[in-house]
């Protein structure tokens, strides 16, 4: 009857609000503030946070940096893609391009690395499986984040940002050794 009629009172904004609504608004507001505070809390005390460090770059510059690292630390090759074993604590560089993640890493468990990610062409999605960590990889931008693999094993890097007809071919790999 009245949700589509003008309010019964001309000065409707001065009408009292029922207790039920007030209680619900109060509870909801408290919950909203808790959810809000969780984010700065986790940013300071939590161990999993999105990258805060990024630079503008170019495909040529980033590609050269990746190649430099590959030449320095390549240990073998797998399906035509170099496998790189950089020293613990170092900066490691991975690029996405149509339709490949390059190179493959061999990392050590419980060691930290500074992972640099960028794209040579279109946007890609770095989706580390099976732990399901997902990052956006954008051409022209270099994202840097500290990673500390805490479980040994073989990990897949699925591209989860649609990048054309060969999107499903774009799978990379990271090995974590003991």
């Amino acid at each position: 009857m009245t949700s589509y009629m003008p309010p019964a009172e001309r000065i409707w904004w001065k009408m009292p609000v029922g207790r039920q609504e007030l209680v619900w608004i109060a509870i909801s507001l408290v919950w909203c503030l808790i959810m809000f505070l969780m984010m700065p809390y986790w940013h300071i005390y939590g161990k999993q946070n999105p990258a805060t460090e990024a630079y503008q770059t170019t495909p040529a510059k980033f590609g050269a940096r990746v190649q430099e690292m590959v030449e320095q630390y390549q240990v073998r090759e797998e399906s035509g893609i170099p496998v790189v074993k950089p020293p613990a604590g170092s900066d490691i560089y991975m690029l996405g391009r149509l339709w490949q993640w390059y190179p493959i890493f061999e990392l050590e468990k419980d060691q930290s690395y500074r992972l640099h990610l960028s794209s040579m062409d279109w946007q890609h999605g770095f989706s580390l499986q099976p732990i399901n960590v997902n990052l956006q990889v954008v051409p022209g931008y270099e994202m840097v984040l500290q990673i500390t693999p805490d479980q040994a094993g073989e990990y897949g890097v699925v591209c989860n940002e649609y990048c054309g007809i060969g999107h499903h071919l774009m799978v990379g790999r990271i090995y974590v050794g003991e």
Binding site: W42, Q48, N49, G125, V133, N134, N160
Partner: peptide
């Protein structure tokens, strides 16, 4: 849409 939780959901 929670900043950090998005890490395990984005684009899935």
């Amino acid at each position: 849409g929670t900043l950090q939780i998005n890490l395990i959901i984005h684009n899935t």
